[in-house]
Design a protein around this nucleic acid. Structure first.
Lengths: 343, 343
DNA sequence: CTCATGAACTAAACCGAGTAAGTTACTGAT
DNA sequence: ATCAGTAACTTACTCGGTTTAGTTCATGAG
């Protein structure tokens, strides 16, 4: 009742293990007749190669790793990651690659997991997401010499390959749009301040506001942890301040929706009293009233792009170090309008 | 620049491979001093066990498989699966198990993937979701003799272990609530008709309506593919029919939200003209206006429960064949109210 | 008729661990 | 002094494939 091995096939076929190996792998060294016979017997016995044995000889694992530093329970609520994963999966499925997923509780553990997977030959490569300043993972991965693709801006990625999109461009587009609508006081409810892409968006935001003309546009940034609760809290604080902004740009859709609720609680009209822009466009943004103006990007395509890059890296194909995906584009919907009193 | 092996450690320590193996695995057969020395050297060299070599000796893969029959691109939009995965992950992460994920395009391929993973010793067990009538996967898994936990009702699971919750109870609760509100014509926009849980919910729905009294409650079921588009289409059809229902129960939240939009398009007031109930309670249900009355269940907990069951099965611990999780409970919100003209 | 060539194989080493069985060397009892 | 017992090892084989280095035999050229 044990699983058949090539030795079993060899015995049945009256040949050596080596001949069976050649036959099953389509290598020369066996006659057509013998090969056909061996294939028939292997099919009959229901033989499956044992990947452990193959891996021992340095074969590919046909698996890619993704360790996510995220409280597992909130994962399901993060459209971004889920869409990213589905995009990665779509690309991997074509080549019969699997995705090895593990949720970790900190970056030390994340490095540990990657070290183990790589050391144990269980993955051929991995993704790194949410880089922060002086990220220890970069050096750790470089030291491991494992194929890695950073999903995010190259600035902190060191020698690692990256796939990214120009968030600065998207922020600039948004600010210019709001300024054109007459807004002179714009707030940004941002994500975690340590993350590279938060910093970059922050800088671009400030720059874009300043570029509108000296002293013309007041700007303010509030940092959060991306949760709806924090988004609501910051919105409440912003809207209660004496110098209330007339437009708020949120770093994700969860916070934007929460912010919209807060505004409505405070009996403010959106967009007449307050314009709202969401970063990332999930179904969520479209079902609320008014539907949210959002920075849309094709996240699954982003993930697929990263997957292609990683697979090329693993295959040893020549790759450009850094691939720029399309930037997010602004989709105006009902949550933005002219600033009150402008014109 | 190659990875160190126990042979390298043995050479450095001046002992045999066997001694190193004993030392690293905490087995007797080496002195304290030698063990300490070997451990120090292994740390210094950054040795990691090669799981391929270990697996060859029959060790665990410390990985669980999940092949999902789903168009990968829509995965990110399915809160249910993402929450399920996050619940499974939460349980696995504690024991350093990883989750092997692959999206497949049909059940034949799903069986193929499982056969390969199991045959190749890459997973210790797997989940089966979305069982349908006469599901070929059940027999295939039984034949493989691989530890499997079916997530769903036991009726079609044959000899396989299951984790399920009583959807019938939840449906009954919903119908009784709507009837008490005066509704006499209730529709159900259901999921894929071939799925076991759809059938069971259908039956329970009809039964509950009939139990309200002979001929007292009109009921209607429309089957869809779970997408928002189909949900909207069916809603449009239902609301245009001469005998328009006063309440609709949807099989997921995506369709419920889409249905709400359709109702509002058709200038119907929710809940005055139409009551809406969603199955599964995601953030989506709470941000629309009015917020949706929903059948809530703790999906991550459900996934965690299934993961515990599978891990117990893998460990060879004694397990009950079928574990019943808590049923979904109805959370009334703004989308349900008394039927117009009742009382 | 002999030798070179190459196709079709076989035997055995190898990958990196685990482990059963065998070997030392030392301790303590008789 | 001798023997049993044991701690501390070593040796060698195992897992299931891949791969290298032969070996055998048929064929064709010289």
């Amino acid at each position: 009742m044990k699983r058949p091995t090539i030795a079993d096939i060899a015995r049945r076929a009256g040949v050596s293990k080596g001949a069976v190996s050649y036959a099953l792998n389509g290598q020369p060294g066996v006659s057509k007749a013998t090969r056909a016979n061996i294939l028939a017997i292997s099919k009959e016995l229901g033989w499956q190669p044992n990947s452990a044995a193959r891996a021992l000889n340095g074969a590919r694992a046909h698996t890619i790793g993704l360790a996510l530093f995220r409280p597992a329970r909130t994962l399901g609520m993060e459209p971004f990651f889920m869409e990213l994963i589905s995009g990665i999966e779509a690309e991997l499925a074509d080549r019969s690659y699997a995705l090895m997923l593990q949720v970790v509780t900190d970056h030390t553990q994340e490095i540990e997991v990657y070290r183990r997977w790589w050391g144990e030959g269980r993955v051929d490569g991995a993704f790194l997401v949410d880089l922060h300043l002086d990220d220890a993972r970069v050096e750790a991965m470089r030291a491991l010499n494992m194929p890695v693709v950073v999903i995010g801006h190259p600035s902190q990625a060191g020698p690692l390959s990256t796939v990214w999109s120009d968030d600065g461009l998207a922020i600039r587009e948004t600010v210019e749009y709001l300024v054109a609508l007459g807004h002179r006081s714009i707030a940004r409810v941002a994500g975690l301040p340590r993350l590279v892409h938060t910093t970059l968006r922050d800088q671009a935001f400030v720059q874009a506001c300043q570029d509108a003309g000296p002293g013309r546009v007041e700007h303010l940034i509030a940092h959060t942890d991306y949760t709806g609760e924090e988004g609501a809290r910051m919105t409440r604080r912003l809207l209660s301040s004496p110098r209330r902004p007339t437009a708020i740009v949120y770093d994700n859709d969860i916070m934007a929706v929460a912010g919209l609720s807060v505004a409505q609680e405070m009996v403010l009209d959106v967009p007449a009293d307050l314009s709202i822009v969401a970063w990332d466009d999930s179904p969520l943004s479209q079902v609320v009233r008014p539907p949210l103006t959002a920075l849309t990007r094709d996240i699954p395509a982003y993930g697929a792009c990263a997957a292609r890059q990683l697979l090329a890296l693993i295959a040893g194909e020549p790759v450009v170090l850094s691939v720029e995906d399309r930037p997010a584009t602004l989709i105006p919907r009902g949550s933005t309008g002219p600033a009150r009193g402008s014109r």
